[in-house]
């Protein structure tokens, strides 16, 4: 899937400025940037939630799904997990329950979870449900917008592992957005850096992290807090 010359304007303000980005099939592209860099707006444009100019080619734009940052706000509190996951399904009613169970098992949740309400789940579990719901629509591209920033570190790992296993097992393409460079580095094959609406650097993860060419990328890398490992 190729995003070509995508621009989003809010009045006189240009939130995303002429971004061209290729997401190879079966790859995870990490998009990193600070607040106001336009990365979340880009995600909302790609998923059709905000109007944009430019084009998206090489895939069906209707088969793009998104997982949101806040797992406490992205599930309808009045719907059971099963009903939420079933929402995007295009299968006959009879096959629905089996499909919901399959999706839940894809995100390592037990089938018994289908009858529960979001309030009974932890943040990490909710985020898995949101991923299962998105997978139900059989997406060609999954956009993950800061999906671990509302989670505690101790559960973040399991969600990141899930993201990687989905790529390996389903060959899912993904646009993984985060402000956390260490997280992006861990899951992505390709890293793209956004600054003030523009894409300033893009390349294979090890290259961008190991030998950044852009000055802004360098300052971002230097600012990442590190544990002094002995």
């Amino acid at each position: 899937m190729i995003i070509k010359n995508l621009t989003v304007r809010f009045g006189a303000f240009t939130a995303v400025d002429d971004v061209t980005l290729e997401i190879p099939a079966g790859a995870i592209v990490g998009l990193v940037g600070e607040s106001g860099s336009g990365k979340s707006t880009l995600a909302r444009a790609v998923t059709g939630l905000v109007p944009y100019t430019g084009e998206i080619t090489g895939g069906d734009p209707r088969r793009i799904q998104m997982v949101f940052q806040d797992p406490y706000a992205s599930l309808d509190p009045r719907m059971t997990v099963g009903a939420s996951v079933a929402e995007g399904l295009r299968v006959p009613r009879a096959a629905r329950q089996a499909e919901v169970e399959r999706l839940l098992s894809l995100v390592s949740l037990p089938a018994s979870m289908a009858g529960r309400y979001p309030r009974e789940l932890s943040g990490g579990q909710r985020q898995r449900v949101a991923v299962a719901r998105a997978l139900g629509a059989r997406p060609e591209l999954l956009v993950a917008d800061e999906i671990t920033s509302a989670l505690d570190v101790s559960v973040q790992g399991s969600v990141l592992n899930l993201v990687r296993s989905l790529r390996e097992e389903l060959g899912l393409s993904m646009l993984f957005i985060s402000h956390n460079l260490a997280v992006v580095r861990y899951v992505s094959d390709v890293v793209a850096v956004m600054h003030r609406g523009r894409l300033v650097e893009m390349g294979a993860t090890e290259e961008v992290v190991g030998s950044p060419r852009d000055g802004y990328t360098r300052s971002l890398l230097e600012a990442v807090p590190r544990l002094k490992r002995a």
Binding site: S154, G157, S158, Y186, R226
Partner: peptide, 19 residues
């Protein structure tokens, strides 16, 4: 469970089960 700039990307990340 904390990924940093030196985490081995070929290994699954540690996490703590439960809450």
């Amino acid at each position: 469970s904390l990924p940093d700039m030196d985490t081995d990307r070929s290994l699954p990340l540690a996490s703590i089960p439960g809450h």
